[in-house]
Design a binder for these strands. Structure first.
Lengths: 148, 148
DNA sequence: CAGTAATTTCAGTATATACTGAAAATATGA
DNA sequence: TCATATTTTCAGTATATACTGAAATTACTG
């Protein structure tokens, strides 16, 4: 199975539309890096409608960006710079959501008493990663700016 | 909206069955921490079939465990110790999957040439987190064992 | 102002799966 | 072994949505 198909399968397993994965995968390996909707339609075998709406989805998530060349009605799509960082940051926001959820629960059952022990562990667990992950992130950015 | 309902909604947004979220949420705040299927059915308003299969799902993921008391056919369900760690570890495995995927792509297009630049960035990005995240994890475990 | 290349919309379909409710299976107590 | 409490299975339903293909729209060119 090709890389592009495996990206499609990965998206599928993550509950995302397969075609979004095919597009993302193809945009990762195509040459040149910018492609038109028609090229992506050809490369993935998906319909024009799917390509259009899935590219819109990927743009909304910040993984893909497009630009038009003046004097033409063609639009060119490419992987957005920093797409991986953005995807990772999105994942990390879940940690904050879960920490907040634990606090919603604690407000509901009260801080003391046997009903709060699991929620306090949940809150502390996610609060720890919420605090530590941004530093890790910055370290990557730093190493990346310097010569790797 | 109650904490339990918000957990249901969270699961739903993550592409997981809502009822699994309701069960997980209720098991986080119930007293006593162990509950029977009948109690969970009552508490969540879900059918016996759903409660059974969603508890099975949660057990499969390692978030819930059950035990039977001798001399009775009742089974008791509770949040598994370390459920949050396990959930986080599961998420982190995706980093490895994506790093491997990048390598599949690189094998396909070759390391040099313009087609590999995005894939090399992808591989390096995920390889960095794959290397760093386990240490963060261990630090949490360590702090948690000591008095927080 | 046409003519046309490209994009976008959208109705229709196919498919997957969460969920229910009741029947079947299982395991304990008498 | 029979009766019963509990769990498990499963057929059927409802719902959501990925996807197609064609029509409608948009925007550039001559």
């Amino acid at each position: 199975m090709t890389f592009v198909d495996q990206m499609g399968e990965f998206f599928d397993r993550m509950g995302q539309p397969r075609i979004a994965g095919l597009l993302f995968g193809h945009l990762l390996i195509c040459s040149p890096p910018e492609q038109t909707a028609a090229q992506l339609e050809e490369a993935t075998g998906a319909s024009a409608g799917s390509v259009n709406s899935m590219l819109r989805l990927l743009q909304g998530l910040g993984y893909v960006e497009r630009r038009g060349e003046p004097g033409s009605r063609r639009l060119w799509y490419r992987i957005a710079p920093g797409a991986f960082s953005r995807a990772m940051a999105e994942r990390m926001r879940l940690v904050e959501v879960l920490r907040r959820l634990a606090e919603v629960g604690l407000e509901e059952v009260g801080e003391e008493g046997g009903r709060s022990d699991r929620l306090r562990e949940m809150r502390d667990f996610y609060a720890f990663f919420e605090r530590q992950l941004p530093a890790l992130f910055e370290e990557y950015e730093k190493r990346h700016e310097d010569g790797e």
